[in-house]
């Protein structure tokens, strides 16, 4: 174990996999000598000569070329600087990367990782603050992961790289500096395994990414009032760990879903639908969702604060079930 930040843990995951497998390479805008817009890939260009490539501003070709290289046997980790820019390379993702294997009758594989970052709270406004995981989840053929802790960041990175399918790996800006214990050397967190970040018997809170931490803070406050919340960090939205969710709801009979993305079409709707379909009888109360409202992300700090799901809003939603 080593103490490191979330950003360092991602880098460590990349480094270990690059050392292990010469077919892994990184590419993206400013990932090389600049070390990435958020410093995540700092130094790797020197550690791995010829394997960390700065690209022009060319998202279509960044992802398109990753698809081609992956289909031709490499393992690209292609960065899109902000998840908000994936709109530019959406075809490469949803018509190409995701469908190649199926369309070709199972004869191709596309082992690539699209690394990107999401989330608000920085005053970065409507085109640099979004959470788009539901888009990717809606595309069969792609896996989508969103680590919330340094250890998960490393383990999920390694698993994403080793997976033979396209994986969208979404970091969060608010977590980059978060420090935690991370296993040294090779470390894998299997895709599709949720993690119970806090156990409790009164209410299940399903969440992911930054909101895990807001939910944990809410759980702490709720505990003082005698409500024991169980916090499930999905880690992967696809594949979805239904079993962990249903098991928890079977215990608590109450479900609150918390995510930073907007409500309509958000992945919370899918979680709710799964529980309604497969665990309707487990529920004692309606399912609650705590999400951003259905608006773009505002710039002003006052507005953004009102926009983001907060500890208070989570506590309030939980209490409404009791």
């Amino acid at each position: 174990m080593k103490k490191m930040t979330y950003a360092e843990a991602i880098r460590d995951g990349l480094r270990v996999e690059m050392q292990r497998d010469p077919s892994v390479y990184l590419c993206g805008e400013d990932v090389g000598k600049f070390g990435g817009c958020f410093g995540v890939t700092a130094g790797l260009v020197d550690e791995f000569p010829g394997r960390v490539l700065d690209t022009p501003i060319t998202e279509t070709a960044i992802i398109g070329s990753a698809v081609g290289a992956a289909a031709a046997g490499l393992r690209p980790v292609a960065e899109i600087m902000f998840v908000d820019f994936t709109g530019v390379c959406m075809d490469e993702l949803f018509n190409q990367a995701s469908k190649m294997r199926y369309m070709f009758g199972g004869k191709a594989k596309v082992p690539m990782v699209l690394r990107t970052i999401c989330g608000g709270g920085l005053g970065a406004a409507a085109q640099h603050s979004q959470c788009m995981e539901a888009w990717f989840a809606h595309i069969p053929g792609i896996k989508t992961v969103l680590p919330a802790t340094p250890a998960d960041a490393k383990g999920l990175m390694a698993a994403a790289i080793r997976d033979d399918n396209p994986v969208v790996y979404i970091e969060h800006k608010q977590l980059l500096g978060l420090s935690g214990d991370v296993p040294a050397g090779e470390y894998l967190v299997p895709l599709g395994q949720a993690d119970i970040k806090r156990a409790g018997g009164d209410v299940t809170i399903v969440t992911w990414s930054w909101m895990v931490h807001r939910a944990l803070a809410a759980a702490e406050a709720l505990a003082r009032e005698g409500i024991a919340a169980e916090i499930i960090d999905l880690r992967s939205v696809v594949p979805l760990d239904k079993e962990t969710i249903l098991k928890s709801v079977a215990k608590t009979n109450k479900l609150v879903i918390v995510h930073e993305a907007v409500k309509t079409g958000g992945f919370g709707g899918e979680v709710a639908a799964v529980v309604a379909e497969e665990g309707f009888d487990l529920l004692d109360t309606p399912i609650k969702r705590v999400t951003a409202p259905d608006t773009p992300v505002p710039f002003s700090a006052v507005l953004e604060k009102a926009y983001l799901p907060s500890e208070g809003k989570i506590i309030q939603a939980v209490k409404e079930l009791f």
Partner: peptide, 13 residues
Amino acid sequence: YGKATGYCKGKGG
């Protein structure tokens, strides 16, 4: 500044 009087009422920046 993100103020209400701004060009975009603080929504754009």
